[in-house]
Amino acid sequence: MRKLGRILLIDDSEADNFIHARRFGKMNIAEEVVVRANGQEGLDYLTTPLPTGHYPRPDLLFLDINMPVMDGWTFLDTYQHLADEHRARVTIAMLTSSVGDSDYARAHAYAVLDGHEAKPLQKEKIRALLGSHFPHITHP
């Protein structure tokens, strides 16, 4: 296995989504990058079967916190009780605030989160993430 199957981005910022999707594409680390604009859309996507009959099951999920309709925390409240087939293999929260904020403590309270990163996701951060969560992936 040379790259990930699917990466799901749940973020309301089009600019961030554009930059992140472009960066994933340039690094060529996934077959497919799926973007959803808020927590509700993300949940709908994860719990709806694809035409193949399987659930999407992304390898990697990047979750923004501040979003309209359903924010990241509300999403996590539901997401942590979902069955494995409705969840991503690795879930990362994207925090925009600085170290020491209450968001950090809150993120640590969710066992379902595998980690958190500050936006934007630069190449180095992405490489480090892949290195720790998907050591078998070869990436540029």
Partner: peptide
């Protein structure tokens, strides 16, 4: 300030 001011700034540097 931390969230909303930084976001457009991030977009500028991204582009």
């Amino acid at each position: 300030a931390s969230h909303d001011l930084r976001e457009p700034l991030r977009t500028v540097s991204n582009y």
